[in-house]
């Protein structure tokens, strides 16, 4: 669905941000991207719907080149991005108005815009906040509203750029729940984070460092790779515990390390079976 071919990009001051990135994203895939600050992951995100154009190489979205200005609007209809800071991505003064912003830019007829706003408000559970200013929402609701503002464009692919890094853990979980639901509905998800605990549901994880892809694979293998420690990325603590228990003959399968309760349940099953 999205293909990056030999993509390189340098900041205006000449510092390289991405070098020679090769990657393909299939329809319906859930990809996690991790890396330190400055590893190029956010720059990569901005390339996915043509907000940045590659200096070298090309980015193709469903066969359309992001450098082709005449196709940009179409590309942005397909790939939506949710950004880190909820405050600076609201354009409307009310939640409803903000949700309408995207479809209005697509020049959709009023009744279609209202239909979409209605549907997304219900889907994300924001009906009660319709006339609230997005700025008065709590962090978690705010990020959900930002997601809703992207969903009214009805994109096939959603990019989340460190959306939970300013949120408390409970709000983060709320946002992640929506991400998971969207993936189940068949949306392609690209989830960028430096919190490894959030990537349990991903199909594939890409690790970036200094503008390059340094590691790629299934979460089970990538997250336990000791190489991550060299990058300053600590593995999820429950996964770490499961790895260590394995050496003592207690086998906790990977799926069960996703939450404290599933982990505890598995230990009970192992220990108390007669």
């Amino acid at each position: 669905m999205i293909r990056l071919e030999n993509v390189s990009y340098s900041y205006p001051d000449g510092k390289p941000a991405l070098s020679d990135i090769h990657m393909g994203i299939r329809k319906g895939e859930y990809i996690g991207i991790i890396g330190r600050n400055g590893s190029g992951k956010s720059t990569l995100a901005l390339h996915l719907n043509g907000l940045l154009k590659p200096g070298k190489g090309k980015v193709m979205v469903k066969g359309m080149d992001t450098r082709d200005i005449s196709r940009l609007q179409e590309i942005r209809k397909i790939v939506g991005i949710v950004f880190q800071n909820p405050e600076t991505q609201f354009i409307g003064r009310t939640v409803e108005e903000d949700l309408a912003f995207g479809p209005e830019n697509l020049c959709l007829p009023p009744e279609e815009i209202r239909r979409r706003v209605e549907r997304v408000l219900a889907e994300i559970g924001l009906e009660n906040y319709r006339y609230h200013s997005p700025k008065t929402l709590s962090g978690g609701q705010g990020q959900c509203a930002a997601l809703a503002g992207t969903l009214t464009m009805e994109p096939e692919c959603l990019v989340f750029d460190e959306v939970t890094s300013m949120l408390d853990p409970d709000s983060g979980k709320l946002v992640l729940k929506h991400v998971k639901k969207l993936h189940e509905k068949g949306k392609t998800i690209i989830y960028i984070t430096h919190n490894l605990e959030e990537l349990h549901d991903a199909d594939r994880i890409i690790v970036m460092d200094r503008g390059r892809i340094v590691l790629e694979g299934e979460p089970e293998n990538v997250l336990s790779n000791p190489f991550l420690l060299d990058l300053g990325l600590t593995p999820p603590s429950l996964m770490d515990l499961a790895e260590r228990l394995k050496k003592h003959g207690v086998m906790i399968p990977w799926e069960k390390t996703s939450s404290p309760s599933s982990f505890a349940e598995e230990i009970c099953r192992l220990f108390l079976k007669t």
Partner: peptide
């Protein structure tokens, strides 16, 4: 109260009778 993941898991274990 909110707990870090390992502590939350240990509490869960205790409540399940281990």
């Amino acid at each position: 109260v909110p707990l870090p993941p390992v502590a939350a898991m240990m509490r869960e274990l205790k409540s399940r009778g281990i």
